[in-house]
Design a protein around this nucleic acid. Structure first.
Lengths: 283, 283
DNA sequence: AGTCTTAGTTCCGCAGAGTGAAACCATGTT
DNA sequence: AACATGGTTTCACTCTGCGGAACTAAGACT
C-alpha cells in the first residue's frame, strides 16, 4: 500500500491510505477537498520512470495498486490528452510530449535558477568541478540546474534527474537544514528503505547535521558513488516556506583532494550560497 | 470554450465540449471511459506556461473556464501531490518539481533521441549550425533533442520548449508529411489563430508540401524569426503510428547562405534522416 | 474607523461520474 | 483446442465530485 505513493511529508495527506474507494475505510475522515481520480491519474504517470519507460496496463495496475479497469480508463484518458502514447501496435504506453512540456514550464519559472547560474558557473570553473542545484520531490532530489567546470565533463546528470537524499552531499544538506520533526519523518522513511545499511547511512546524516552547524557545509565522500566526492550547502527561501533548495559541488576523487574539498571548495560553496541568497532577496 | 483546450486531432475527444458536468449537455454522448476530473486537473497544470508561471486560483479559473470552487479543489490536490507549490505567503501557485520529474522521465524514454544524437551532432558540426529534433503536441512543436555546432551558440532553445508549427522549418516538415485530412484539420486551426497573416502562412505551407516531394526537405527563410534560416525534414516511425518527428537544421542568415542551405545542408539533412531511420529499424 | 473590492475557501444537497468485480475479447502459446 | 495473458466493456451501485451561494480574509479607498 504505502509502497505506491510516498505521502508528502508532515502536512501531507497520503492519498492511498486516505481512500482507495473500495477499501472500506474505517477511521479515516475523507478529505472533501482532495480529488481522488486526479491523484490516481497522476500516479499512473508517475509509474513511468526513466528506466521503466514502457508499461502495459497490467504493469501499471501492479505498480499503482489500482484495479485493471480503472487503469484502463485512466490510460485512455491520458492518451487522449497527449500525456501518454500508445506504442508498438497494441498495449504498452509511454510518456508523451505533453508531459515533457510541463517539465519545461516548471523549469522556466524557477527564478532561483537564473539567479544562481552565474555564481554556479564561476565556482564550477574555479574548482574544475560540477556545481548543481536541486530540490526535493517526495523521497528524492531533483536536479534543477547544473554547471560543469571547464575540465570536468565527468558525471553527466541532466536536469530533472533524481538522486537519493540520504547519501549525497546535496541531500544531506537539505536534511541537515530541515526542522527536526520533518527530518525525523524523512529519516524514518529512509530507514525503511535502507534496511541493514541504515546504521551507516544514519551516521552520515548525523555527521552532516553536525558539519552544517560547525562548518556551514556537509560532505559526501564516496558514499553515494564510489570515487565521487562532494560538498553540499542548503538554501532556504524565507518568503516561500515550502521551497527548500540545496547546492552541491563535486568531482571525481582523483581530481579533488579531500583537503582542498574541505578547506577550499567547501567554504567557497558556502560563500557562493550566501551570495545567491543576497541576490534573491535583493531583487 | 475551445480557447481552453485544443482537442487532440482527429481521433480526439475534445474534453471540454464533451461534458462540463454542469452544462446540461444536449446532443453529446458521454464517453464513459474518459475521466473528466483527471482531464481538468491536467488542464490546470497546463495553464502554467513558461511566461505565465505564477497563477492564482482566479486566473486559473479564467484560463480553464472552470468554476472557482472546482479550481480550488484541484489546486489543493495538485499541491498535496507536489505538482504545484504555494508561493509567496498566500495565493498564487507555481509548477513544482514533480512536474519536472515527469518531463525527465518522458525524455529519458524516447529511444529516437539516443539514436539520432550522434548523427545530429555530426551535421551540426559540419554545417556550423544547430540541428534539432522535435515532435508535435497539440498545436505546437516541442524540442526533444538538439545539438549545436562548434561555432554556433546563437539561438538557445532548451529541450521541452515550444515553437510554432506553421512558420518553422520543423513544423512545416511535419505538416507536409501528414495525411491530407490531418493536415487540413491542423491548417484550419492555424488559420483561425493567424487571422489576417493567414494567406502568407498558407503559401509557406503549400510551398513546403511541394518542396518535400520534389526535394525531400522544406524551408523556412526568416519566416519564423527574422534572420534565421532553416531546412526541415520529417521522420515517421512506421511501427508507432502516432509518433511523428521532424528535424531541422538552422542558423543565422549571415552564417548560412541560401545557396548552401538549399544545395548542401538541405540534402545532407535528408541524408541524415535516412540514416537515422535505418538505425531505428536496424535494432 | 467603516465600506468596497477582490480572491480564496467552505457548505451542502444532488446527480451522475467513476468505480471495480466479473464477464468478455483478442492474441499468442503449448 | 485448450490455455494463458492482457486489455476492454458491462453494469448496477454508491460515494465522489460538483458548483451555486454563502462565508471569510485581506487590501484599498473615503
Amino acid at each position: 500500500m504505502s509502497k505506491v505513493a510516498g505521502s508528502n511529508l508532515a502536512r501531507a495527506h497520503d492519498p492511498w491510505r486516505a481512500s482507495a474507494r473500495g477499501a472500506r475505510d474505517r477511521e479515516h475522515v475523507r478529505d472533501r477537498k482532495f480529488v481522488e481520480s486526479l491523484a490516481r491519474g497522476l500516479e499512473v504517470l508517475r509509474a513511468f520512470t526513466p528506466n521503466e519507460g514502457l508499461l502495459g496496463n497490467q504493469e501499471i495496475a501492479a505498480r499503482t495498486n489500482l484495479p485493471k479497469a480503472t487503469v484502463s480508463r485512466l490510460t485512455y484518458t491520458l492518451t487522449q490528452l497527449g500525456y501518454l502514447n500508445h506504442v508498438g501496435r497494441l498495449s504498452k504506453y509511454q510518456l508523451a510530449p505533453a508531459a515533457l512540456s510541463l517539465g519545461y514550464s516548471a523549469l522556466a519559472n524557477m527564478r532561483i535558477r537564473q539567479i544562481a547560474r552565474p555564481y554556479m558557473q564561476e565556482l564550477a570553473n574555479y574548482a574544475s568541478a560540477t556545481v548543481a542545484l536541486g530540490t526535493r520531490d517526495r523521497q528524492s532530489l531533483i536536479y534543477i540546474e547544473h554547471c560543469r567546470g571547464k575540465a570536468a565533463p565527468m558525471l553527466r546528470l541532466d536536469l530533472g534527474s533524481r538522486i537519493p537524499i540520504a547519501t549525497t552531499a546535496m541531500g544531506r544538506a537539505l536534511l541537515a537544514a530541515m526542522p527536526v520533526t520533518e527530518r525525523e519523518w524523512m529519516m524514518s522513511h529512509i530507514q525503511r528503505r535502507e534496511g541493514e545499511g541504515w546504521p551507516k547511512v544514519r551516521a552520515g546524516i548525523e555527521r552532516a547535521v553536525n558539519d552544517l552547524v560547525t562548518r556551514g557545509f556537509v560532505l559526501s565522500l564516496g558514499e553515494w558513488q564510489q570515487d565521487i566526492v562532494a560538498v553540499g550547502v542548503p538554501l532556504t527561501v524565507p518568503s516561500d516556506g515550502s521551497a527548500a533548495f540545496a547546492f552541491n559541488c563535486g568531482a571525481p576523487t582523483f581530481r579533488l583532494s579531500r583537503d582542498r574539498l574541505e578547506n577550499d571548495v567547501g567554504p567557497r560553496l558556502v560563500n557562493m550560497v550566501r551570495n545567491v541568497e543576497a541576490a534573491l532577496n535583493g531583487q
